[in-house]
Amino acid sequence: MDHQHRHSSSPRELQMARSMCWHCQSEVSGEYFCDRCVKVQPVSKELDYFTCMGFPRRLTIDPRQLESKFYELSRAFHPDFFQNKSAEEQTISLGNSAMLNTAYRTLRDPIQRAEYLLDLEAGAVKDIRTSPPADLFEEILELQDTLDEYRAADRASDTAATLCAKLQMERTTLERRQQDMENALQQLFTQWDILQDRGEATDQTRAERDRILKHMRDILSNRTYVKNIVNDLVATIS
């Protein structure tokens, strides 16, 4: 959390992808509104969500800071406050609000935030396979079979009771595994942030960066498989 505070104090990182006010054609220096004619300025579609919300590309974000930024920008952009303005300004307000809402939704959730960052940073890790590793795949298949057996079995029978006990055990194991993944992800998030904070551009840091991203992508995709099978399991036995 500590390094986070340092970075969010630099809102000037928010760059608009145009330099001229759409209305008065003056050089724009204001953040969201033209300094000269005070018209709202469109947030560029090419802008990434981190930049849009004035946060650096880090994976640890203080939810309260993010929320207060979201509220601040909502007050700046929301169509409610543009009802008396020109049609152009209303269109910009609508577009900016929609983009802001997507940005907030994406960054608010740590997993979505990480997945989004992976998309942005793709480059070297783009061609990573997204199918589960063989051992996890085997495990899931086996569990699917047990689930099918249990569904087919007479609920009052001994077979069902045995299967249910087995499934309960599997559930505990899988949930522990989920927790391990969350912890591993959290560690990777921290590693990523530290690496970014150092801001070095050596071959070594580039390799380290790719390693972190690749590992993150692996865990995120495995996490999805485990999450789905756990949901399936919980729905079946409860």
Binding site: P79, S97, A98, T102, R105
Partner: peptide, 8 residues
């Protein structure tokens, strides 16, 4: 339950 305005 996506906040509106919402775009995709």
């Amino acid at each position: 339950n996506t906040t509106i305005p919402a775009g995709a």
